[in-house]
């Protein structure tokens, strides 16, 4: 039994300065394997080969195929995040507000848990097997309707839209997983109060429900964006190196210094951090603005 008060002569407990020692292992771990490596990249982006400060690497980002690779990466990420939010929201709303039978909800949530984690190389194979040159849908359309995806619809799995619809396979379930609890938080009385005050369903959604959901929607969008922007495995397995997006370029640079300048590689990685950080800062800023009415 420890005595409630220290006996005379023993050291008084120095609680305050030592408390943080409890999370020291965690701090050392994240410093070594998360903060320092990231900081190394960021600093390296502003150094030349001899280690002196320079902005040349950042300027060099504007050369060759690098700007276009950023642009196409951002486009794919925005498109897959926006469509993921939209479709995922519609599905989550359908099961939450009773447009479809209630029992569908539990299996849908389980399935979303699986599908949102089914990314990377296997996912790429699934879409190749479906929309690739000899894929299930491709062959089905050609044999039954005489439609050749690439020739008649301009669709190619190794393209902007090909990658976008592949990413949607994990973006939609991720949205469902995150937004469903938020939708469940909408209280029935809010809708009814709006209705007796004369509001239509559309007015209720525009003036009450969407503003309440706004922070969650934005947060999920930012997350989905970062999720797609950093995806390497799916893109490489799907397109090899035929699609010029940032993660693939950076991957090639790390493997073989294809840019001929290691510090330019740092700058590319730094650029990726900047893009995802901007997405998240926009989210945080809008969230603070939108949450004046929250504790």
């Amino acid at each position: 039994m420890t005595p409630a008060t220290p006996a005379p002569g023993t050291r008084p407990p120095r609680r305050l300065p030592l408390t943080w020692l409890g999370i020291l292992p965690f701090l050392i771990f994240v410093t070594l394997f998360l903060i320092l490596p990231t900081a190394h990249i960021v600093i390296g982006a502003f150094q030349d080969r001899s280690g002196a400060f320079t902005l040349q690497n950042i300027r060099d980002l504007n050369t060759g195929t690098i700007p276009s690779s950023y642009w196409i990466s951002v486009k794919i990420s925005v498109a897959s995040a926006a469509l993921g939010c939209l479709i995922g929201f519609a599905m989550a709303a359908a099961v939450t507000f009773g447009a479809v039978p209630r029992w569908i909800k539990a299996p849908l949530m389980t399935f979303s848990g699986v599908a949102s984690n089914f990314a990377g190389v296997p996912l790429a194979f699934a879409f190749l097997a479906t929309f690739g040159p000899v894929g299930l849908v491709t062959v089905f359309l050609r044999n039954n309707f005489g439609i050749v995806l690439q020739r008649d619809l301009g669709f190619n799995i190794l393209s902007f839209w090909g990658l976008t619809i592949t990413y949607l396979f994990f973006q939609i379930p991720l949205m469902i997983l995150i937004i469903t609890p938020a939708l469940e938080g909408l209280r029935r009385e809010w809708r009814e109060a709006a209705e007796v005050l004369g509001a239509t369903g559309t007015q209720y959604w525009r003036m009450i429900a969407l503003p309440i959901l706004f922070p969650s929607l934005l947060g999920t969008f930012a997350l989905l964006f970062a999720n797609a922007f950093g995806a390497v495995a799916t893109a490489i397995a799907l397109t090899g190196s035929s699609l010029n997006i940032v993660p693939i370029q950076l991957y090639a640079q790390i493997r073989g210094d294809v840019l001929g300048n290691p510090n330019l590689g740092y700058a590319m990685a730094f650029g990726m951090i900047v893009v995802t950080a901007i997405a998240n800062l926009i989210y945080i800023w809008l969230r603070i603005r939108a949450e004046r009415w929250l504790k």
Partner: peptide
């Protein structure tokens, strides 16, 4: 339950 709109 107080059904005030929390965002207004």
């Amino acid at each position: 339950a107080y059904a005030l709109f929390p965002n207004l």
